[in-house]
Simulated assay, not measured.
Amino acid sequence: MAYMAELQRAGLVRATRAGKWTHYKRDEQRIAALVAELGQTF
């Protein structure tokens, strides 16, 4: 899933491997910082 790799590179999700599976978890602090930054821009 290329879009998940992009989100991981942007720091918005964290990935952990479990065998052949990859589990993703949102990085809430990074997302909140991005939303705050976007709020200041507009």
Results as ranks from 00 to 15, higher is better:
M4V: 05
Y3D: 07
L34A: 13
M4T: 07
K20A: 15
Q8T: 11
W21M: 10
K20H: 13
A5K: 10
W21C: 03
I31H: 09
A33E: 15
E37C: 02
D27K: 13
T22Y: 07
Q8A: 15
R14N: 14
D27Y: 12
A5C: 02
Q29W: 14
M1P: 10
F42N: 09
F42G: 10
G11M: 05
H23L: 07
E6G: 08
E6D: 10
E6Y: 08
T22A: 11
G39I: 06
R30G: 00
E6A: 10
D27P: 01
T16C: 00
L34I: 06
G39V: 09
A15L: 12
K20V: 15
L34K: 11
E37W: 10
Q8I: 05
Y24G: 01
W21H: 12
I31L: 14
A32N: 03
E37D: 13
E6H: 12
V35K: 06
L12I: 00
M4S: 04
A36T: 05
M4H: 06
Q29K: 14
G11S: 08
V35Y: 08
G19P: 00
D27L: 14
A32K: 08
A10E: 08
V13S: 05
V35Q: 08
A2S: 11
T16K: 04
G39M: 13
A18L: 07
E28G: 00
T22K: 06
A33N: 14
E6P: 03
H23F: 13
I31Q: 11
Y3C: 04
K25Q: 10
A10M: 09
G19D: 00
L38S: 04
Q8K: 15
T41A: 13
R9L: 13
E28D: 10
M1W: 15
R9S: 13
Y3R: 13
G11C: 04
A10F: 01
T16I: 08
R9H: 15
A15T: 11
Q8D: 10
K25A: 14
Q29I: 12
L34R: 04
R26V: 15
G39H: 09
